[in-house]
C-alpha cells in the first residue's frame, strides 16, 4: 500500500480526534435517567444547616458516628492523617478569631460541631484545577473521587480545615463497610457532602437524623418559609470566619 508520511500523519490525526470525541459522546448519551434523583427526593435550591449546641449536646457523638458509618469514613488514629467529615472542637479553635483573653473558660473550651460549611462562595471550587470539587444545583459542594488528582490545593484554600486527604489506603481503617456508599482510594481528598446521596432517596442527612432533640436544623436557605429560615429569623446566629467572604451555610446558635 502506498502510504507516505503525510497520509500517515493525517490518519493519525483523525484517529486522535475520534478518540477524544468518543468519551464525550458516551457521557452525553448515558447520563439521563440512570443517576436521576428518586421520586421521593428531598430537593432545595440552597441547602443549609443551623447547629444549636444547647439542644445538640448529648447527641454529638451519635451524629458523628452516624455520618462516618454512613460514608465509610476511616478511623485513622493519627492527628496528621485523620479523615473526618464531621467532628467537634472547642470554641477557642473553631471561632479562634472571636475569642478574647477574659472569656468565660467554660465557653472557650465548650465543644461545637464542625463540618464542611458548604460555602455559597467556596474557595475550594475556585482553586480546583479539574472541577473534581464543584457546587451542585442544590448548593452542595460535591467531590468527584474519580476525577480528583490529589493536588490538595483545595486543602490549602479551605479556611475551615474541613477537607481530609487520604494519605494511605483508607479501607483497612473502616470497621464495617457500608455497601451503599463508595469507599475511597489513597490519594484523593474527601469531605462532608450534606448527604446528597440520602437526600436523593428522600432521607435527611445522617447527622440530622441522629440529632433527636432538634439540635440540627436542615432546610432550604432560599425558601423564606423553611425551618432553617425561621430559626435564622428568630434567633441570634453566627458563622465561622464570615469576614473571609466565603458565605458559610452552616450557622451556629452559641
Amino acid at each position: 500500500m502506498d502510504i507516505n508520511r503525510r497520509k500517515f500523519l493525517k490518519a493519525g490525526g483523525v484517529l486522535a480526534l475520534g478518540l477524544s470525541i468518543a468519551p464525550a459522546k458516551s457521557v452525553l448519551a448515558g447520563v439521563k435517567g440512570k443517576y436521576a434523583p428518586g421520586p421521593n427526593a428531598l430537593t432545595a435550591k440552597n441547602w443549609a444547616m443551623v447547629v444549636d449546641m444547647n439542644k445538640l449536646e448529648k447527641d454529638v457523638e451519635a451524629c458523628t458516628m452516624a455520618c462516618h458509618k454512613e460514608h465509610n469514613v476511616p478511623n485513622i488514629d493519627n492527628k496528621k492523617e485523620e479523615v473526618k467529615w464531621i467532628w467537634t472542637d472547642k470554641y477557642g479553635h473553631l471561632f479562634h478569631d472571636n475569642k478574647h483573653d477574659f472569656m468565660n473558660k467554660e465557653m472557650e473550651h465548650r465543644h461545637f460541631l464542625a463540618l464542611c460549611n458548604q460555602c455559597e462562595n467556596p474557595v475550594c471550587v475556585r482553586v480546583c484545577p479539574t472541577k473534581a470539587t464543584f457546587k451542585n444545583k442544590e448548593g452542595i459542594i460535591m467531590m468527584d473521587y474519580h476525577r480528583c488528582i490529589g493536588c490538595r490545593y483545595c486543602m490549602a484554600g479551605c479556611p475551615y480545615g474541613a477537607r481530609s486527604f487520604n494519605f494511605k489506603d483508607p479501607r483497612p481503617y473502616i470497621e464495617e463497610i457500608n455497601p451503599n456508599y463508595p469507599t475511597r482510594t489513597k490519594g484523593v481528598v474527601e469531605k462532608c457532602n450534606f448527604c446528597s446521596e440520602r437526600l436523593a432517596k428522600g432521607l435527611l442527612p445522617a447527622c440530622v437524623e441522629a440529632s433527636t432533640n432538634g439540635g440540627l436544623v436542615f432546610g432550604d436557605l432560599d425558601d423564606p418559609n423553611s425551618e432553617v429560615r425561621k430559626v435564622l429569623d428568630t434567633q441570634f446566629t453566627v458563622q465561622r470566619k464570615p469576614s473571609l467572604g466565603t458565605k458559610p451555610k452552616v450557622f451556629y446558635i452559641l
Binding site: 475556585r126 482553586v127 480546583c128 484545577p129 479539574t130 472541577k131 473534581a132 476525577r147 480528583c148 488528582i149 490529589g150 493536588c151 490538595r152 490545593y153 486527604f165 487520604n166 489513597k186 490519594g187 484523593v188 481528598v189
Partner: peptide, 26 residues
C-alpha cells in the same frame, strides 16, 4: 516536583481534559 506531590499522578492529564479556567493551577 508537581507530579511527585500528587496523590493521583496517573490522573495528571485531568488538568487538560477538564480545563478549569478559574483555577490558578490550570
Amino acid at each position: 516536583f508537581i507530579i511527585v506531590d500528587m496523590g493521583m499522578p496517573m490522573r495528571v492529564l485531568n488538568m487538560f481534559l477538564y480545563p478549569t479556567f478559574n483555577s490558578p493551577m490550570f
